[in-house]
């Protein structure tokens, strides 16, 4: 075997390696729509994604260095917070809404249950500053990061400047979160012909298309718009959703439509986490709708599902669980970084 041949092999391997890295950072199947996020403004790079991952898991973002993004957005819950109906912040403060799951964020036009945030880059400002979440200011976060040997190194590697800025901190957080793509559920495998639905799942899929798909639109399983889904007002919270931001009556009781992907990992359900089981959710949509002026047009007439239909529908919904995503090691706590001697600097 000649030297030439070895070099050729090495080059090809190198190219493949490069190609794999490209795929790893952000990739999605053909049948997904074009992302909303403008990657030209914040091109993904490995060092920036790594920085974002460290920031996501580091309680340095909170005022008393106790709460990280991952405290309420755990990777094993598809980045939601299982068992907690309302989010849980510093000093055991309890918020007013359920921490939503984080995945496929590149396809979302607005953020938060009420759509208060217009861009992924600026989303982190809300939990960082909220007194019942992290209770910190972005200016002080940046100050702490500038004083951390770990982050001086990581910002230098990512941005060529060891000093953190608000812009870079937020953009790095976006970078990591953009890589959280869930597209490997059984549904996805069926979609590309690598698996097939059982008879029951197929029946559930048919019911889903008829009754659910106009809001929880496949393949993302949300159209990411806002709707009043007929939940009665919880008088301990008096949350009117999007109205609280726009103050326009047409927005009263409108909340962001969540994706149904990974739903076994993301209970409890709804903006206030009022339902613990999928059965309760189906019961709500079939017999529990509270009618008010802004109710979604799809819910004006009752959805009728027999008990067999419900079983079939749930069988289909379970095919939306993406175990590969939930247990993907690249999304996990970066132990090597944050548990190093420089990590968790107080």
């Amino acid at each position: 075997m000649s030297l030439k041949y070895s070099i050729l092999v090495l080059i090809s391997l190198g190219c493949m390696g490069f190609y794999t890295i490209e795929l790893k950072l952000f990739d999605y199947p053909e049948y997904f729509p074009v992302p909303e996020y403008n990657f030209d403004e914040n091109p993904l790079e490995e060092a920036k994604v790594e920085l974002g991952r460290a920031l996501f898991y580091d309680p340095i973002l909170s005022k008393d260095n106790t709460i990280s993004c991952a405290s309420c957005h755990s990777p094993y819950n598809a980045f939601a917070h299982t068992d907690h109906d309302l989010s849980h912040g510093i000093n055991d403060e309890i918020g007013t809404r359920n921490a939503p799951a984080l995945f496929n964020l590149a396809w979302q036009k607005s953020f938060m249950w009420d759509g208060a945030i217009n861009h992924l880059d600026v989303q982190a400002l809300a939990p960082i500053s909220h007194p019942a979440e992290m209770g910190e200011s972005i200016a002080n976060v940046v100050n702490k990061l500038q004083n951390s040997a770990l982050y001086r190194k990581m910002f230098f590697e990512a941005y060529g400047d060891s000093l953190a800025t608000g812009e870079y901190t937020l953009k790095a957080l976006s970078q990591f979160q953009l890589t959280l793509v869930s597209s490997n559920s059984k549904y996805d495998k069926v979609k590309v012909g690598k698996d097939s639905f059982t008879v029951q799942e197929q029946a559930g899929y048919t019911l889903f298309i008829k009754n659910c798909n106009s809001c929880h639109t496949e393949p993302l399983f949300s159209n990411y718009s806002f709707a009043n889904n007929g939940l009665s007002i919880d008088t301990t919270l008096n949350d009117y959703g999007k109205w609280g931001i726009s103050k326009q009556s047409k927005d009263s009781l409108l909340f962001k439509i969540p994706s149904l992907r990974n739903l076994s990992y993301t209970y409890p359900y709804m903006h206030d986490g009022r339902f613990k089981k999928l059965n309760e959710v189906l019961k709500h949509y079939t017999t529990g709708i509270s009618h008010s002026k802004t109710i979604a047009k799809e819910l004006k007439r009752p959805i009728i599902l027999s008990s067999n239909d419900k079983v079939d529908l749930i069988a289909f919904l379970l095919t939306l669980n993406d175990k590969d995503f939930v247990f993907d090691p690249k999304n996990k706590f970066p132990r090597d970084i944050l548990m190093s001697s420089e990590g968790f600097k107080k």
Partner: peptide
């Protein structure tokens, strides 16, 4: 206002960017 995080005079650390609503 709808273009995400920006730097310099527009950096959110300047205290001129709302956090609870973009």
């Amino acid at each position: 206002n709808v273009s995400g995080a920006m730097g310099g005079d527009l950096d959110p650390t300047n205290g001129m960017y709302w956090t609870w609503q973009s």
